[in-house]
């Protein structure tokens, strides 16, 4: 975690690229954690976990201590991750069925999960499964189970959508995945801690706090600072 837990502004560094964001998330995962990395961008976090991190990766289709993606000569159709990508197992791996896999999630045994998002509210509501568009086919997968199950839920996303609108909002406009479930949001421009009182800025990248605050419309405060 951010060692001093007071705001660190890095106006000269950033916005962060996807791998830099993944590295920041990896830095904040405590040693020895049991972690689920969501499909897509969060998968990159695995590449940035340092040797000896002791992190055990969970994939909800029934494996603990999942290894890296399979090389062409390692592909086994019986061994995939939740994104159906062929992966490998590490020594100490364990297999289990789906009801057990989600029981360990729902039961609060996973330390951290990292998810992508369409929107997150300042109080930690998550929207990441459905745009609500009339022709969209709803598909939730394990998103709702992960959102409410892990002890800590980290979101990784760009802070602004392609149309320029912020994705950290007062209230999610998209259908919700979970209520008040997100603990931290890692973005290209800043890292936030969320709670019932709103968002706390832990770090900024390529922007200062005041400029960041001016671009967002949420209850916001710098870490260890008086509310502004």
């Amino acid at each position: 975690m951010n060692p001093t837990d007071s705001l660190v502004e890095n106006p000269g560094r950033g916005p962060l690229g996807k791998d830099e964001m993944a590295a920041i998330v990896a830095r904040d995962i405590p040693h020895g954690s049991y972690v689920n990395l969501g499909i897509g961008q969060p998968t990159r976090v695995a590449d940035h976990l340092p040797d000896g991190s002791g992190v055990v990766l969970h994939t909800e289709n029934g494996l603990l201590n999942m290894g890296p993606a399979a090389k062409p000569d390692e592909v086994d159709p019986d061994l995939t991750n939740a994104g159906k990508i062929p992966v490998t197992e590490l020594p100490g791996a364990a297999y289990f069925h789906h009801a057990d896999s989600f029981a360990m999630m729902r039961g609060g045994h996973l330390d951290v999960c990292v998810l992508g998002a369409f929107q997150v509210s300042a109080t930690g509501d998550l929207a990441n499964w459905h745009t609500g568009a009339p022709d969209a086919i709803p598909a939730v997968g394990g998103a709702m189970d992960l959102a409410i199950g892990a002890k800590k839920v980290f979101v990784m996303m760009s802070l602004f959508a392609k149309d320029g609108s912020p994705k950290l909002v007062r209230e999610c406009g998209y259908p919700l995945t979970g209520l008040g479930c997100v603990d931290r949001v890692y973005t290209d421009l800043a890292t936030f801690r969320l709670g019932p009182e709103g968002a706390t800025v832990l770090e900024t990248f390529g922007i200062g706090y005041d400029d960041l605050a001016a671009r967002l419309d949420v209850p916001l405060a710098p870490a260890n600072g008086a509310p502004r």
Binding site: F102, A103, M105, D145, G149
Partner: peptide, 17 residues
Amino acid sequence: REGRIQLEVVPQGTLAE
């Protein structure tokens, strides 16, 4: 999309449980 099949979406863990 043609309305020829019904869908009930269930969270994956809830489906298993």
